[in-house]
Amino acid sequence: MERNPILEQLEEYSDNLEKEIAVLQEKRCISYKPLLESLKKQYAFAHFLMYEESVFDTMPQGYKTLLSKALSDVLVIHSTVTIGCVTQSYNIVRSLFETYVNLMYINKNFEANMKYYEDYTIFAQYHKLEEHKNDPDYKYDPYFIQFKNRTEGPLQEKYSFIENNYKERKDWYFIPLSEEIKNHPDLTDREKKKKNINFKTLCEITGNEKMYQKLYPSTSNAAYSTSLAHNLQSQSVASQAGTVISLVNLSIHLLSQMLLVGLNRQIETGHEECEKYLEIRFA
């Protein structure tokens, strides 16, 4: 059977393109390879603490959820930057920043705010279940009926204890942040009334307003896809290197700060053995 000449041509083209991309990647990465290695080591260190050393096993589930999400984001950032897709990494950096800010707010009043964060899962699940119960696409589905019959009673009981701690269609931090703004000693009554209870205000109250201003205007314009080869060739090496250095340094910083929250919390609660990890840095 004769091979299709178009397929033969495509195979040759694909091989050449792969070689071309590899050369471009090497050219792009040469100025920031050591920094990418530092990011990989920071990721490995966090993974080591969490899964090999089990350092955070006694931490609340909410902390472990946030750290796990941060690890996933860092891995994607490293991968996208390594293959030259710097533009695509912007929104992942923003996701990492949001996770970090949530943890920084929790850490302002750790036990109380962590309970708000963890219990919000019950609040969200309850309202999702109520929504699906009235949705024709779900309410007659046998799998949904089975799920509803199994979970509705226990979920309703848990919900009854926490329903007043949240507002529907608002973030988990809406009520504690509202109270904090209301009682903030450095804000005038006029300023308090003008404050929206949103992520921007969460950044302000945790001291991350400048980072918010830097990240959001720049990343909001990056929500489009670009082919790998075009992305590699679209900017000068020097220009892209500067962007990568900023993004990778920020990623290392955010993840390391999240680790510090967990390590310091463990030390404060009697796990002095965690002190040996505090001096390890990869910036």
Rank of each mutant, 00 (worst) to 15 (best):
R150T: 13
G153H: 06
E179N: 15
N149G: 13
P154Q: 04
P176I: 02
N164P: 06
Y166W: 11
K148Q: 11
E152S: 11
F161R: 09
R150E: 14
L177K: 07
P176Y: 06
E152M: 02
G153S: 13
E157W: 05
Q156P: 00
P154V: 07
L155W: 08
E179V: 11
G153N: 12
E179P: 09
Q156M: 11
Y173V: 03
K167V: 15
I181F: 05
D171M: 10
F161H: 07
L155S: 04
F161C: 00
K148R: 14
N149F: 04
K148L: 10
N165T: 00
K170V: 07
D171V: 04
W172M: 02
K148P: 00
S178E: 14
T151W: 01
F147T: 01
E163P: 01
L177D: 12
Y173L: 01
K148Y: 09
E152D: 11
L177T: 05
T151C: 09
I145R: 13
N165P: 00
Y173M: 04
I175G: 02
N149R: 12
F174M: 06
I181T: 09
K158D: 11
N165G: 03
W172D: 02
N165M: 06
I162H: 01
W172L: 03
K148V: 01
I175A: 02
F147A: 05
E168V: 14
P154K: 02
Y159E: 04
K158R: 02
K167Q: 11
Y159P: 03
P154C: 05
W172H: 05
T151F: 07
F147G: 00
F174Q: 08
K167F: 14
S178I: 06
S178G: 12
K148E: 10
L155A: 02
K148S: 08
E163W: 01
N164K: 14
